[in-house]
Amino acid sequence: MTAPKVDPEAPAIEIRDLHKAFGDNEVLSGIDLEVGQGDVVCVIGPSGSGKSTLLRCVNLLEEPSSGDVFVEGIQVTDPDVDVDAVRSRIGMVFQQFNLFPHLSVLRNLTIAQQRVKKRDKSECEGIARANLDKVGLSDKADAYPAHLSGGQQQRVAIARALSMEPDMMLFDEVTSALDPELVGDVLAVMKQLANEGMTMMVVTHEMGFAREVGDDLVFMDGGVIVEQGNPRDVLGDPQHERTKAFLSKVL
């Protein structure tokens, strides 16, 4: 088991010629992508384009069929790497929130800190409460997920990921399951994180967010990156036909 050694010079995420097939269905057909430290990269595209799969390959929730993924210089696709250790430094937020329903909000935030990072109880709680405060839910520490609205649950999910003090955050369509009036609160939290310099890779349909906060916009279709560049450029003046077709439907 190799203890992962972070390379401070390396980009946060580096993806080289990534392929992923589910049986006969090839979902990723050769992806090359770099996310620099502190960057916010937004990935957009039609459903089935492989964008979620791409995200999930970064923290090995999906195992690539071929190609390499490097996180802070560590090759996560190496079979000897300690995946759990790598994952504890990558925060992920899911479309379906995935809060632990049998635990209180506070416990949701502290359990991984305690079990994985082995912090003592008061340290965990301190960090947890600070993060709850950051997402605007300090008063919900003792509530249970079932009592929260979708938007509140998602913000708790973000706070949970942040409590592990990750070096980067992955967001997988985190507002797609929310009622429209709740989306804004979640996006606000994400904007704040971006402004604080968090490295973020965001799969989303929220073009406004991408334009405002993104450093790089990636358009995927059919398992490949069709177009990539500065959000204002890609959104305002798309070069490819498929990009134009997609944007005309969603904008």
Binding site: L60, E63, D82
Partner: peptide
């Protein structure tokens, strides 16, 4: 998927 050897 490498299971942590500790787990095994």
């Amino acid at each position: 998927m490498t299971d942590s050897r500790r787990g095994r």
